[in-house]
Every structure is written in C-alpha cells, then in structure tokens.
Design a protein around this nucleic acid. Sequence first.
RNA 1: GGUCCGUUCGUCUAGCUGGCCCAGGACGCUAGGUUUUCAUCCUAGAAAUCAGGGGUUCGAAUCCCCUACGGACUACCA
Length: 510
Amino acid sequence: MERKVRVRFAPSPTGPLHIGGVRTALYNYLFAKQKGGTMILRIEDTDQGRFVPGAEEYIIDSLTWLGIKFDEGVHVGGPYGPYRQSDRKPLYREYADKLISKGWAYYAFDTPDSLEEIRKSYEAEKKAFQYDVTTRNSLRNSLTLSHEEAQQLIADNHPYVIRFKMPENQDIVVNDHIRGRVVVHSGLLDDKVLFKSDGMPTYHLANIVDDHLMEISHVIRGEEWLPSAPLHVMLYRAFGWEDTMPEFAHLPLLLKPDGNGKLSKRDGDRLGFPVFPTQWQDPKTGEISSGYRESGYFAEAVINILAFLGWNPGTTQEMFSMDELIHAFSIERISKSGAKFDVEKAKWFNQQYVRQHSGVELAKLFMPELKGKGISIDEAKLAIICDLVKERVSFIKELWDQSYFFFKAPDTYDEQVIKKRWKEDTALHLQQIALILENTSPFETQPAHDNVVTYIQENALNMGQIMNCLRLVIVGAAIGPDLFTIINSIGKAEAVKRINKGVDEIKLLT
RNA sequence: GGUCCGUUCGUCUAGCUGGCCCAGGACGCUAGGUUUUCAUCCUAGAAAUCAGGGGUUCGAAUCCCCUACGGACUACCA
C-alpha cells in the first residue's frame, strides 16, 4: 500500500538559506506536488547559540518569492504543529527518557573540558577519540556509575547529556533512493548526544521524533546527512518505529565553482554570483550579501537553474516551468555526484526568461528605473521599446544600456566607430540628411528610411559608412535596433538635434 | 587517522537492463552566414583515450576488483 506522501524542509535559522538549501526545498516541493502530498516547513532551532534573528522570516520570504509553497509549517500552521522545535521542547525529553528506560540511552556526566582533554591525549598518540562501545565504560556515565551515584548527580544539578547507546555488533542498512544500499557496521559508530545539558535535544533526536510524529514519508536532504543516516535508522529501531520509518534520498552537494568543496554561506559574493535567493543583511555586522532577486534574476529562472543542478529530465528540454517540473521530476533521475554552479549558464537561463516576458510585462519592471532617472514615459510606448530590445539583454537591469537612446541624446560617441567610419565629408552628408529628415512628411519610419537611402545612392556614397555614422550621432554607439525605428520613436526634431549635436562634438574629437 | 559517498568535454549532463558510442545535448568558446550596427537567429568547428590499472566477455563508459584523486562526516552545530 502506498503511503501518503508527507515531506518536510527543515532548515535551522542560523542565517540566510543558500541555494543548496533552496534546491533541497525545491526537490521536496516537486516531489510532494507530483505525488499529491504535503509539504511541511519545520524550523530546527535547537541550537540556541547559533540562532540568528530574522533568519526564519528570510527563509519564508525567499521561498515564497520562488513560488515554493507549504501546506503546513511555522507560518501557516497545520494539524501536526507546533512546527518550530523550540516550541516542542518538552516533547523531546519525554522521548529521550523512553530510550533510557528501554536501555537504548544513558546519562553522561563528562564535562566538555574533560572530553576535550581526552581528545587531545588521543591526538598526541595520533589516534582519534570516539565516545563509543570501546570507551564508554571508562567514562563518567550512568553505565559506569552506580544507580545511586547517577541519581545523586542528577539531583545535585550536575550537568549531563543523554547519549545513544550504539549497539556493538550490527550491520545497519540505509536504503537510499539515490545512493542505493549503504551498509555501516554499528561498532564503528559513536554514542551520539541526543539530549544536551541545556535541556534541548540535538538534531538527531529532534529530527527523528518530529519526522515520526509528523508522519513524514520521505526524507529528502543533503548528502552531508548521509553519514548520520545509520544513526537515524538505529533510532527508529530503538523507538520501535521501524515499520513507519521514512524513505531516504540524500542529494548530491552543490560545490564551489572554483576548486572543490561544499558551497558555503560564507562564500558570499566572492564567486561572482549570489549564493542566496534574496539579499541578506547580517543583523550583527550589517554586511550585505547579494541575492538572485536583487541581481535581476527571475524567480522562474532561479527555479529552472536549480532544478537542473543535479537533476535532468533525460530529454533535451531545458526550459521548465514549475508545473512542468512537478510533472517531470523524479528522484530516480537525480545524479549522484556534486554539481558546480555555472554563472554563464545561469545568465543564459535568465535571458530565456526575459524573452518569455511580453513588452508590457517588461515595461512594468523597467519603469521604476526610468522614474528614478527622472524619465517619464507612457507605458504603452515603453512596452514597444522593450519588445524592440529584449533580445539583447539577459537581465532587466541591462535594459537601460540597450535603450537609453530612446530617452536621451548620447553623451559620448564610440571612438572605435569614429575611427573606423568617420570620414572628412561625413559631417557634410549628415547635415544634408538632417535636412532630408526635416523635410520628410509625414515623418514615418519607412519614408524617412527611403529618403535617406535615396540620398546615399544618388551621391554614390558608401551605405555602411554613412548609416553607421548616422547611428553614431543618434545612438552614440554601434548598438541597438533598426535605426529608423529609433529615429521615428524619438521624433523628427530630436533626430535633427542629435545629428547637429553629434556633428559638432565629433568635429572636436577628430 | 577513521567511516561513508563520488569520479564522462572548462561547466551542467545523456549514457545506467553491455554491441546503435572511436561517446550525444546544453552553456561557454572559435569560424562563417543573416542583420547596412549590436543582439538575436542559422551553419560549422574545437573540446571527454568515459580518473588510472587489471579482470569478465566475441564485445565495456556501461559488470567485477584494485589504485588514485575529490568530497562529506567524524561537536553538548545543524
């Protein structure tokens, strides 16, 4: 019988979510939606020391921007709440105690300092210390102390943790949807802390308890969790929950584009692309890290880019909307090896999305920038301009560089073009062309074009040379859409004005 | 050090049930064409001895073993 699909994205609010985390959220979301399942946002804030104010809001806001929606979670509620682990605090102690009474866990009174000392002495002998079956009997815990002594220490408020008593001799099997069958021998694993001396559970305990209580069916998370998956399997077994244990899928890591290693939050802007979905300002240092949204990426593009970092549909289709991804996605087609982010490919994706937008939509996005420059223009007219130049840009913010000449005369003239095209008699001819334009009536694209071309032909002039120089004085460079479309857009008077201004200024340069 | 995971063009990858692969696509790059400019678009090209070695087989990128390299984890962090 198929189990009802319930997946969770469970970040800890220790800062902004980086794109690796976003991808994990995305894959969970795609899987849930495809299966008609439930997507849950659970906040894992059991580490009081690393809590960062604003991080939870950031996570919610940035995922909302990207269109990753939750059915249950801290911000939307749900029947399995609360969804913030700090709000579930009493629960975990209860379950830790259950494990103790079943003999699967024990109290450990070793101080962090004493453990650190032992670690150092091991290191001195080039050995690695591990709190496990081989060492637990020589340490201070409820297995080595008498029952009375242990109870007394607890009664005296002596700090203690609760550790899992990893069995000595078992093969633990993790069946992973991406990695296959991973077997680890329990004797190699350590007695992980389940419950900290500050009264909070560790990730391992809280995670298993919550996944069980929230009836999570599939755990889709980063590969960094693979090494602790055997512990998690053991915990399910210890609790007697093995028959409802979720299925696992450990995602390949997102790597640094330079060198190797896991992409980290700290990589920041060093790499020439954002590592965060939206801009983040560190509440302590005030330092700002750029985001995809602020860098001009469309949410749809970011989703598309991220979906393809570690997954592909097996066809040649590359452009996928969220709905298409939901249909096409499959865990089986997730690759095993880590992927590096490619800025160029990301730009290309965004460019494709720019083109998918209509001129009207682009005009709406471009308008604020123009307003900021003190330019007011009719939205319908701007839409036409956007349609004219949209194939030349990858980002909305590049629109200005490709269309400024529709709004103002050029301030500078491309010297390369002057050098290559500007001749002795060019100024003369351009002035003639100004007169021709002046006398063109009605002033439309086609007649203006025809009249100028006729002039060039009648005087046996070099078409390319004159046309490029005309473009130079109108636009300022050898860029842009059809010249007479531009001339028509700016109007007769402005065109004539720009020709005269250009001729004058270039005269000074040559 | 230990445990686990991984390794196909610069990058993302196809290939996973062996022959259609002297390895295909995409980005990027180069050249040509179109555009009287730029961008787009079109065409072509360079680019992986499939990490290396050894098996199995008539035949291996695909199966097995070893080695190398990379990575993750190894906290009272997640």
